[in-house]
Structures are given as C-alpha cells and as structure tokens.
C-alpha cells in the first residue's frame, strides 16, 4: 500500500469489493438469475467480509504486528463497511423478491427471517460511525459500538442455519475466527504465566 497514493489504493480496494455485486447484478439484468438466486451469494459475501474485518484484530494480538497484518488492519474498516453494503444489497434483493410489504411482514416472525433483520439492525450503528471523525469523537466508546458486530455475526450465522439446516457452510465461516480467538486466548494466557514466572 505504501507504493500507491492512499486515495488510489482506496479506489482500487473498493473496485475489487464491488466485483461480486457487479456479477450478481449482471446475472439479474441478463435474466440468468432470479432475485431469489442472489439471496445466497449476497448474504454469503456479507458474512465473508465480516469475517475478513474481524480477523486481523485477534491475529495481531496473537502474533504481534507485522507488515502484512498492519496492512490488513488498515483496511479493516473498509471491509466492515463493505459487509454492511452487501447486507443492504441482500435486503434490496429480498424486497424485490418478496414484492409486497405485506408478504414481508407475514414472515417476519419466522426464526430464519427475524434473525436476519436483527443482524442487519445490529450492523447499522457500527457501520454508521466508521468514518474518521466519528472514531475521534467517540474515543473508547467507538470500540464498544464495534462490538455489536460480534452479535450481528452470530445472528447472521443463526439466520443461515435456520434457513438452510446445513451446519457445514456456517461452521466453515466461523472456523477461521474461532481459531484466531483461541490463538489469542492461548497467547494471552501463556504470556501472563510467563510474566508471572519471571516476575
């Protein structure tokens, strides 16, 4: 990232992040995909971006900062905002597919559906405060707000599981995070004991 001006790097990043959406919309406009066919890829892309945004934190805690992880961390907020954007695209596709408000309200009470809505609502606040000025204003409170993402992530996985009843894809998306969290917990606990022994 140091080789390119910041603005250029950011533009390239967002161009890349927009590729899956472009492919989905092309399928829809070209008539190869029904709106319902795009619910899966848009939802899954959102979950994947959430995972990518949530990984560098625990990895840095576990391995300490290096160039790669620092670069990753520097684009983390972009990944999070993109995850929210894909959740909005997912919702837009859902609205197109459902056609009427009445049909959407009718299924709002189903566990597979309200978990999705709640996941989306929990993403609103963290996404809304993800610009530099909000970060400065909020100080430590900013981190607390970002923790809502954990709840949103768990709900998104529940949403997936409840619709699909296939635990494997949801579990695969949880696995890297679970490993990073375990690694961090292990590193932190061994560090504490080491410090105690040498104290």
């Amino acid at each position: 990232m140091t080789l390119l001006p910041r603005a250029t790097a950011k533009a390239i990043l967002w161009l890349l992040l927009a590729v899956p959406a472009a492919l989905m919309l092309r399928g829809l406009v070209g008539g190869e995909a029904l709106p319902m066919d795009l619910l899966h890829p848009s939802g899954e892309t959102s979950v994947r971006l959430m995972v990518l945004a949530m990984l560098p934190g625990p990895l840095i805690d576990a391995f300490g900062p290096n160039r790669f992880l620092r670069g990753w961390l520097s684009i983390r907020r972009n990944l999070g905002v993109a995850a929210f954007a894909y959740a909005l695209l997912h919702l837009a596709i859902y609205v197109i597919d459902m056609r009427t408000i009445a049909a959407m309200l009718d299924e709002l009470g189903l566990p597979g559906i309200w978990t999705g809505w709640l996941a989306l609502f929990l993403m609103i606040l963290p996404a809304a405060v993800s610009f530099d000025r909000a970060m400065r204003w909020l100080g430590r409170g900013w981190k607390r707000i970002q923790r809502l993402v954990y709840a949103a992530f768990v709900l998104a996985l529940a949403h997936w599981l409840l619709l699909d009843w296939n635990w494997k894809p949801a579990a695969i998306h949880l696995l890297p995070l679970a490993m990073a969290w375990l690694l961090r917990a292990w590193r932190v606990s061994t560090k504490v004991t080491r410090e105690r022994t040498f104290a």
């Binding site: 597979g112 978990t115 768990v154 709900l155 529940a158 599981l161 009843w165």
Partner: peptide, 20 residues
C-alpha cells in the same frame, strides 16, 4: 436475553437440511 432468544429460535424449527 440475546442468548435465550437465539436458543429459542434454533429450537423452534425442525433440523432437517433440505439438501438431504
């Protein structure tokens, strides 16, 4: 409350993967 709601949601439906 959050965990409880999630638990209820997961138990409210029958576990049968439609792909299976």
């Amino acid at each position: 409350a959050f965990a409880a709601a999630l638990g209820c949601a997961l138990m409210a439906s029958p576990a049968q993967a439609d792909g299976e």
